[in-house]
Design a protein around this nucleic acid. Structure first.
Ligand code: FES
Ligand code: FES
Lengths: 166, 166
DNA sequence: CCTATTCCCGACTATTTTAGTCAACTAAAT
DNA sequence: ATTTAGTTGACTAAAATAGTCGGGAATAGG
């Protein structure tokens, strides 16, 4: 099972593209700056994303990358698969033969786990992550507001003479 | 996200203990032979499993390891956690700060994935894995193989001239 | 044309992690 | 006493990861 910074970077970069979807091609330099990922590393990743037809590239000044499809039609599993992070958790790569050609005791467990992970990632598209995130940010802001309000309430309580002196 | 041979070995070894639960303490040498895991490596793993009180040890001749609880009370997640394979898929280890102290675009995704994986592994106990009939069959085959190997070894020893004639 | 920008590509390297080894030691059973 | 088997810590080889470097090739603007 491999799920490391490589896959995280790829998804983050794709999300960046999705967020700036309507601004024409986005250069890797922009993504590098915004997301704090090394430019050279991004080049490696996008070579793979392009081969798997998840992004289109435009060369020359003003060029960059764009999503090849609508953000709600690109799923996280595709991205992770593209950069070659193999989500399979079995030792035998699904061949059920990791022990002298026989299936080992735990094969089925890892096989089921791999399925779970893959299903999970295959069910999430870029657009839905962004939507959720916006909701979360709004929620966080609301929480902050709520805390402020509660502090104000506490301030008011403190000022009530009966309590202040009790 | 870390889920590699280490965790697989630990679970496989624990399954081996569970399968031979009623045969008294099981030596690491037996597990090593049956499951094809290096003895020295097993020592490392069991040191951790013991610290986390998943197994009890018995020293001396006839000694070995036993499950500390019934097989249906030991969950895969505990085993994986014990050998220090950390199932967290986020870069920030859950702190939501991997980008200049801010939450990165994909944090939520990895966080949810980590939860999924952990829940999955926390819901599966050793007994239920074994109950899936196939595992029992594999174990039976492994025992047979072990016996064959031992017979072969005896055969070879018998064929050594110095011994045969001495 | 020239030049700056940007993608494209392959090889290279440093670092970290994994998987596995080794040696010396302690406890218990016969 | 001797042998079996767990206990511990340090060590190492090999692999994977994360990242670098340097030179290209396409293209927009002048
Ligand atoms: S993991 Fe598939 S046979 Fe062992
Ligand atoms: S993975 Fe948690 S903030 Fe980026």
């Amino acid at each position: 099972m491999r799920l490391t910074a490589k896959g995280r970077y790829a998804v983050t970069a794709m999300l960046d593209l999705a967020v700036h979807e309507d601004e024409g091609p986005i250069s890797l330099a922009d993504i590098s700056r915004r997301q704090g990922i090394s430019l050279s590393y991004l080049e490696q990743l996008f070579a793979k994303l392009r081969k798997h037809e998840l992004v289109n590239s435009v060369r020359g000044p003003g060029g960059g990358y764009q999503l090849s499809r609508a953000a709600n039609q690109i799923f996280v599993a595709e991205i992770v698969d593209s950069v070659d992070e193999n989500v399979d958790a079995t030792k035998c790569s699904g061949r059920a033969d990791c022990q002298h050609g026989e299936m080992c005791l735990s094969h089925q467990l890892w096989s089921e786990l791999s399925d779970q992970i893959h299903q999970f990632l295959a069910g999430i598209d870029l657009a839905s992550i962004i939507t959720k995130r916006e909701v979360a940010q709004i929620a966080a802001r609301q929480d902050a507001v709520q805390e402020r309000v509660q502090e104000d309430i506490i301030d008011e309580i403190v000022k009530i003479p009966a309590l202040a002196e009790g």
